[in-house]
Simulated assay, not measured.
Amino acid sequence: MKRAFRYRFYPTAAQAVQLSRTFGCVRKVYNLALSARTEAWMLRQERVNYNATSAMLTAWKRTDGLAYLNDVSSVPLQQTLRHLQAAFTNFFAGRAGYPRFKSKKRSRRSAEYTASGFRYRDGTLTLAKMAEPLQIAWSRPLPDGAQPSTVTVSQDAAGRWFVSLLCDDVIPAAAVTAAAVGIDAGLDHLLTLSTGEKIANPRHERRDRKRLARAQRDLARQEKGSANRGKARLRVARIHGLAEKMPLAVRSWVCRCGSVHDRDVNAARNILAAGLAVSACGAGVRPQRESSRKRQSATKQETRWVTTGISRPWAEEDVKPLL
Rank of each mutant, 00 (worst) to 15 (best):
N70V: 04
H83N: 13
L57F: 12
F23T: 00
T58Q: 13
A33S: 07
A36F: 07
L57S: 08
R82V: 10
L77C: 00
L77K: 05
L32Q: 11
A36V: 14
D64Y: 10
F23L: 04
N49A: 12
L84P: 01
L69Y: 10
M42C: 08
Q79L: 13
S74W: 03
G65E: 15
A59Y: 14
R47F: 12
A55G: 13
C25D: 01
G65A: 14
A67V: 03
Q78C: 10
S35R: 11
D64R: 12
N49M: 06
L57I: 10
N70D: 08
V26L: 00
L69A: 01
S35Y: 12
N31E: 01
H83D: 15
R27C: 05
A52C: 09
S74A: 07
A67Y: 06
N70S: 09
A67P: 06
W60D: 03
Y30E: 05
V75T: 00
N31Y: 06
W60K: 05
P76K: 02
L34S: 02
R44H: 15
L81G: 03
A87C: 10
Y50I: 06
Y30R: 03
S73E: 00
K61D: 09
L77R: 01
A67K: 08
A87L: 05
L84G: 02
N51S: 11
L77E: 00
K28Y: 14
Q79C: 09
S73N: 03
Q85M: 08
R82K: 12
V26W: 01
Q79P: 01
Q79E: 11
S74T: 00
T58C: 07
C25G: 00
V48F: 02
A55C: 12
N51L: 14
A87D: 10
A55P: 06
R47P: 12
T58Y: 04
D71I: 01
R27A: 02
N51D: 13
T53F: 02
N49T: 09
Q85S: 14
V29T: 04
L84Q: 01
L69N: 02
Y30M: 04
H83E: 12
Y68Q: 13
Y50E: 09
V29H: 04
A33G: 12
L43R: 15
R27Q: 02
A59F: 12
T53S: 07
S54N: 08
T38S: 09
A59P: 12
R27L: 00
N31R: 04
A59K: 15
W60R: 05
D64E: 15
T80S: 03
N49G: 13
W41H: 14
L34G: 02
W60S: 08
Q85Y: 05
L43V: 11
S73M: 01
F23Y: 06
Y68G: 08
L43D: 11
A52V: 14
L43H: 12
S35Q: 11
L66N: 11
V72T: 05
T63E: 10
A36M: 09
A36Y: 07
L81M: 07
M56W: 11
E46Y: 08
A33E: 02
R44W: 13
Q85G: 11
Q45A: 15
Q78M: 12
A59T: 15
M42F: 09
A33D: 06
N31K: 02
K28G: 00
E39M: 11
Y50L: 10
K61C: 03
R27G: 01
